[in-house]
Write a protein that binds this DNA or RNA. Structure first.
Lengths: 202, 202
DNA sequence: CCCGGACTATGACAGCGGTCATAGTAGCCC
DNA sequence: GGGCTACTATGACCGCTGTCATAGTCCGGG
């Protein structure tokens, strides 16, 4: 789980990745630059070399990295599903988190949520990076929904609902140290999502 | 909106209230004790007097205060609704946030979410306080749902879904500085909630 | 050989954080 | 008044933070 397990990538990428991991765990404000360097097994001097924009730049890149990473994962879920349904997609998105929490513990949440909570008011660029991440996910999910037969005028809102419910359930699960919230949300929201599919029986 | 507008309460309560407000805005880690005292117009020396447990105690009380406050608000919504429906309740919960964002801006989020993000891994007692707050809300909403005719075995999960979707939508709305996520979630989830009501037409 | 760029290595600095220690004031009860 | 408790007032301490400055290493190219 440590960044050292991905030594293939260069130090710069390791630091961005490590920053995302530490932000996931402790939030943005409690994550120090020196800590990121140590975690990524990167020299401290590289911080100002690769990130002349300081912590703000590093955090923003970490948020962007997380956004791209999770976006790709959504697309991979879609490719892997034999018969794509909204509930199937949502179930996979939720399952990713329940599995992590059950095997690795409740140490980490969503780094984009952490960035939003900690920086939305203080750092405009980070807030925008978080908004971009949410937007990427929403667009991906919405496109998937339309492909499954959900009317276009509802796909966007339903995608937002899915991501919002997932983020909220992550919060609750982490506070309770219990995946109950995640499984409850998946179980209740799944069927409702499938009902939005317009069956073209003609 | 400042704590100074509630000078009726004693300094201790003002500090707890002020801490919740500042945590809402900047997160737990970025909120300093001196800042809380200044915001609450309370003497700095009162901090160690009223909160010998230090910042941890103050934060925990702020989270507890927020939990009780929002819990009471839910109960008030229920009492005010002429014909209680799940979508009506959820709409009121969402409306509270859209109104704040539209009139006062997107400065603040949910303090319980902030505490969860910042302290879930580092401070066990704060994580428990956040879990208690979520639990209070869930219990309140679940009881309301059963009163409306939702089967008991689904009421809890649906309550979790409602609170989770709301928390997630708050996050997204704040990141985007746009209430779109909140209105989308309310519009899509509302009807689905009403469908869970068992109509006793007998 | 040696220049120049990319990267690394430290050290220092100024600021702010929470916390402790100590002293001071106000007011009430005996 | 004496003494007690509740509360206020400051100042100091130490650790940590992000950032800057400076020097160092490494290595390919002329």
């Amino acid at each position: 789980m440590t960044a050292a397990q991905t030594p293939r990538r260069g130090p710069r990428e390791r630091m961005v990745f490590g920053a995302a991991q530490l932000i996931r765990r402790d939030g943005v404000a409690s994550t120090g630059m020196r800590e990121v360097a140590a975690y990524a097994q990167a020299p401290r001097g590289s911080l100002q070399h690769y990130f002349p924009g300081g912590k703000e730049q590093l955090v923003n890149e970490a948020v962007g990295w997380a956004g791209r990473y999770a976006g790709n994962r959504i697309d991979r879920f879609l490719a892997a599903l034999p018969t794509p349904t909204p509930s199937g997609l949502f179930g996979e998105m939720v399952r990713q988190w329940t599995e992590e929490y059950e095997t690795a513990g409740f140490a980490g949440g969503c780094p984009v949520a952490a960035a939003t909570v900690d920086c939305a008011e203080s750092t405009a660029s980070t807030r925008e990076a978080a908004a971009a991440a949410f937007g990427t996910w929403t667009a991906s999910v919405a496109r998937a929904l339309t492909d499954m037969g959900v009317p276009e005028d509802r796909a966007g809102a339903l995608a937002t609902l899915m991501i919002g419910a997932l983020e909220g359930a992550i919060l609750i699960a982490r506070a309770e140290q219990n995946v109950r919230a995640l499984t409850s949300v998946a179980r209740e929201l799944g069927p409702l999502l499938d009902a939005a599919v317009v069956k073209d029986g003609a």
